[in-house]
Simulated scan of single mutants.
Amino acid sequence: MATYSRLIRRLMITSLSIVISRALISPLLTLFLSNKLGLNPQDVGLLLGIAVFSATLLSLYGGYIIDRLDKRQLLILTMLSSGVGLMLLTFAQNLYLVTLVLIISETASALFLICSKAILSENLPVGQRVKAFSLNYTLTNIGYAVGPMIGVVIAGVQPSAPFIVAGLIAAGSVFLLLGVSREVSPLSQASQPQSFLKTLIILKNDRTMILFTLGCLLSTLVHGRFTLYLSQYLLVTHTQEQTLDTMAALLACNAITVILLQYQIGRFLKREHLRFWIAGGTALFIVGLIGFSMADSLVGWCVAMFIFTLGEMIIYPADFLFVDTLAPEELRGSYYGAQNLSALGGALSPVMCGFLLMHTPAPSMFYALSALAALGGYLCFVSGRRVAIIQK
């Protein structure tokens, strides 16, 4: 990390602190909302789905705003919004107010991610971008590995305390970005983007970006919220105690694999071979999913998760590198915002998998996900040809 500028180093540390603030409440949010509002699990899922869906759509316009305004100031605004939103959850009693707070918090989280990607692209040489993103993603997984454990410990003292602590961490992270404004000197000076309508027209006419976003949406159905459909499957096929033990092992396997190998794999990704990397990552997803369907022991589950995680470690930086290659300098935020629409796949995944588990044999869920992964990988591979042409 010492090879990066002060801005990039602080951005990575800020990303880690923001992820920890989100991860603190991740295992507690469903129970907290259920107890606070008296909602059943299905209604809580609907509430969270509405928040994620709204935030994903708003992030499209947010990407356009990121292109027009100072990115450091926008990062600070998203961090303050996220921090205030997390703290307000402990005081909000009304369903509509809670929904509004969740939408603001989720939107701030999405915009922070988009803005971070745009800053990395804008302030790093081409050869360093994917390595920096891989390192940033490794730090993100460290946050998701330690955050939930800290949150559970704090909740044991006071159930609402994790939300206050998470909010303070998010808001306090603002100080990490103070004092670096004068250092922000993009490597390439981009012109101001045109109106939002014209930006949408540019995105609509970019067939390559549309194909890639559709492919990412299908791929995100598989890897976006994989912990949810795995727990759904295990609850159908195993006892509750076995489900908890298996999920704990799988989450540990996923986190350890990413922390140890993500940066090393990211170093080998090259723009000229991008579509082949995406195809390889998709193949690993499919092998991992088939492994899940056949697993009959904890070791089998962990081996399948290791293979699945290898695919995840390829796809995440490859997606970043694809958009970084395709996007015009003045529209990076808008392109990352458009690609973020693929997050809708993560919201749809539990719904689709729940339906399959209710109406088909349980293992067929993994075969359906494998088919979607293959289709998504094919669309990304086809759009990758355009990236190869751009490179030439």
Rank of each mutant, 00 (worst) to 15 (best):
V146C: 02
G147Q: 01
P148I: 07
I150K: 02
I150S: 07
V152M: 03
I154H: 00
I154N: 00
I154E: 00
I154F: 00
A155C: 01
G156L: 09
G156V: 01
V157E: 01
Q158P: 00
P159V: 08
A161V: 04
P162F: 00
P162Q: 06
P162L: 02
V165E: 00
A166K: 04
G167D: 00
G167R: 00
G167I: 00
G167Q: 01
A170D: 10
A171N: 10
G172S: 12
S173D: 01
F175K: 08
L176K: 06
L177W: 13
L178C: 12
L178S: 15
L178F: 15
G179H: 03
V180N: 08
S181F: 11
S181T: 13
S181V: 14
R182Y: 11
E183G: 15
E183Y: 09
L187C: 04
Q189T: 15
Q189K: 12
S191H: 02
S191F: 02
Q192K: 07
P193D: 06
P193G: 11
Q194H: 13
Q194C: 03
S195K: 10
K198A: 04
K198F: 11
K198M: 12
K198T: 06
T199Y: 05
I201K: 14
I201N: 09
I201Y: 10
I201A: 08
I201Q: 14
I202N: 03
L203P: 10
K204M: 05
N205F: 03
N205G: 07
D206V: 04
T208Y: 04
M209G: 09
I210D: 13
I210W: 15
I210F: 15
L211A: 11
L211D: 04
L211F: 15
F212Y: 15
T213K: 02
T213V: 08
T213H: 11
L214G: 06
L214R: 03
L214A: 15
L214N: 02
G215T: 07
L218Q: 02
L218K: 00
S219V: 04
T220Y: 05
T220M: 03
T220F: 02
L221Y: 10
L221F: 12
L221Q: 08
V222H: 05
V222T: 10
G224R: 10
F226K: 13
F226C: 11
L228K: 09
L228E: 08
Y229S: 10
Y229M: 06
Y229V: 06
L230S: 00
Q232R: 09
L234T: 02
L235T: 13
V236M: 13
T237A: 09
T237P: 03
H238R: 14
H238P: 04
H238D: 06
T239Y: 09
T239E: 08
T239D: 08
E241V: 06
E241G: 04
Q242P: 05
T243V: 04
T243D: 07
L244A: 15
L244D: 13
L244H: 11
L244M: 14
D245M: 15
T246P: 07
